[in-house]
Each structure stands twice: as C-alpha cells, then as structure tokens.
Design a protein around this nucleic acid. Structure first.
Length: 270
DNA sequence: ATGGCAGTTCCTAACTGA
C-alpha cells in the first residue's frame, strides 16, 4: 500500500494538480493538509468521480485536513477530543488539524502541526502545547482496544503530515542559526522527540542517510531552484510497519509546476 | 539585516504561513 502526505496550500487552488498527481502517482491513500476550506465547499465530487473515498475536516481560510483513499476508512475521528477527551483537548480542536481512520489494518493519523510563527510568540506556545496533547493522543491510540483484539497483534500506526519541524540539521539547507529559527528550535525538536519515543520512527531515514532532501521550499528568494529547503513533512511508523516498509521518497515533480504548493508530497510504501 | 511569495477574507490591506 502506498500512502502519501502533501500540504497542498488550498485544495481549491490546487485541485487540478492534486487530482492529476493522485492518478499519476498511483497512491492508495493521500493525506492532505492546509485544505483551507469549510467542509460544505470541499470539492468532493472531483475525487468521488475518480472513485476515491474522502474524509475531511476543514475550516474557513486556514488549516484543514483530509484523507483521500481507494478503499473507505473505518473508525474515523476528527480532532483530539474523541480520543483524549474534552478536558485535555481544551480549545485545540477549534483549529482543524487532526483526522484519522483505519485502512488495510493500518491506523493512519493525518496531522497539520501548528507553524508557531516565531520563537516565544503566542503561536509558539500554542505549538508546544499542541505537541504535548498530540503525545497524549498518540499514547491513547497505541493503547487502544483495536490493537488488542487479534492475539495481541502489535499496533500498526502511521502518523504523517506537515510537522513544521526539522528534527536534524541535515534536514535544513543551512543549519546555521537554526536555534533561533521557527521549526528548528531545541524546544520544538525535543517536543517531537518526546512523541517519537512512544515508539515511532522516521521511515524516510530507513532508506536515505544523507542530507539535501527537502519537502518544503519558501516561495520567496528563489528557494526551490537553489534547493534551499527544509524536510518538515514526515511519515512516522510503529515498528511493525517500519520493518515492512519498502520505500519512502519525496516527489519534487509537483513543486516544479506553475503555481505549485510550497510543499512536495512524501510517499511511503508499506 | 531585510525582504522576497502565495492564499484567504472582514477582499485592493491585513493576516498567516514557514
């Protein structure tokens, strides 16, 4: 099964590119972020006409996530609250950044992690608070009954999306000054490491050791032709899935098109 | 050091993004 994550920076603006790539890439599941549209206005028919299933959680202008899949998803939930409860979710579900469902025995979690704006800002504090709740959310998914039915089968969870965090210096075109830059500060990295310690691994690094591979390039200053990018879109897998993964790569082709998203899709095959 | 580009709405200015 091929699963992709792609921040499309508005599904309506990118609809032709997304539907073209969906077909040409041959992925079975496509996790979208920054759809930037309320559910009532999501261009569902484009995907349904191509015989894909769709689950969405959007809002006006900002954020928004969706999962497009060949087979229907089971056990779908939106936001943190259905898993961690209203008290822990607090106000974090006001922004639509989390959607999950099960397909082919794999729980797929599609995330749009807050950007954080700049270090020390209110949005930065929100990002760190959001990541703390994400850790609780994933802990509860790991402990969920759905993985205890079949002879204690190990959990098969794939957590993907736009994390807005580059975990290693080789994930940034220029690491100098990264401590004071959003997406690479120590606190953000530690928050993500604390999550991965629950039992998730970066499957891209199963296949690629060197730097210079990025998933996001700023629209400005000719960043893409200079390959001044960041690797901030990730697939994190539990061991049972990580072991069986056969490929993970970033498809830069859509980033070369006219009026592209600033992110490229990342595909994993398990 | 700064700004640069793109998408959206409270739409021709201000915001958010990363």
């Amino acid at each position: 099964m091929k699963i992709a994550t792609w921040n499309v920076n508005s599904i309506r603006t990118r609809l032709d590119q997304v539907s073209d790539w969906l077909q040409s890439s041959g992925v079975d599941v496509l996790c979208l972020q920054e759809t930037k549209v309320v559910d009532a206005d999501f261009p569902r028919s484009r995907f349904e006409d191509l015989n894909y299933h769709l689950v969405i959680s959007g809002q006006k202008a900002y954020n928004g996530v969706a999962i497009v899949s060949r087979q229907p998803l089971q056990s779908v939930s939106r936001g943190f609250a259905p898993v961690v409860g209203d008290a822990i979710a607090d106000d974090l579900d006001d922004q639509k950044r989390v959607i999950t469902g099960i397909i082919g025995g794999i729980r797929i979690v599609n995330l749009y992690v807050p950007n954080g704006s700049s270090i020390g800002s209110d949005k930065y504090q929100y990002k760190l608070r959001w990541l703390l709740v994400l850790r609780q959310y994933l802990q509860m998914l790991l402990d969920a009954d759905e993985f205890k039915d079949v002879e204690k089968a190990p959990p098969k969870i794939l957590v993907c999306g736009d994390f807005n965090i580059a975990l290693e210096d080789i994930d940034i075109y220029k690491a100098k000054g990264r401590e004071t830059h959003i997406m690479s500060s120590d606190a953000e990295r530690q928050a993500l490491r604390d999550i991965l310690e629950l039992g998730f691994a970066d499957v891209f690094r199963k296949f690629t050791d060197e730097g210079g591979h990025f998933s996001w390039w700023d629209y400005r200053a000719g960043s893409f032709p200079r390959n001044h990018g960041w690797r901030i879109d990730h697939h994190y897998l539990t061991p049972a899935l990580y072991e069986r993964a056969v490929d993970c790569c970033i498809d830069v082709a859509p980033r070369k098109l006219t009026k592209p998203s600033d992110h490229a899709p990342v595909v994993v095959e398990v």
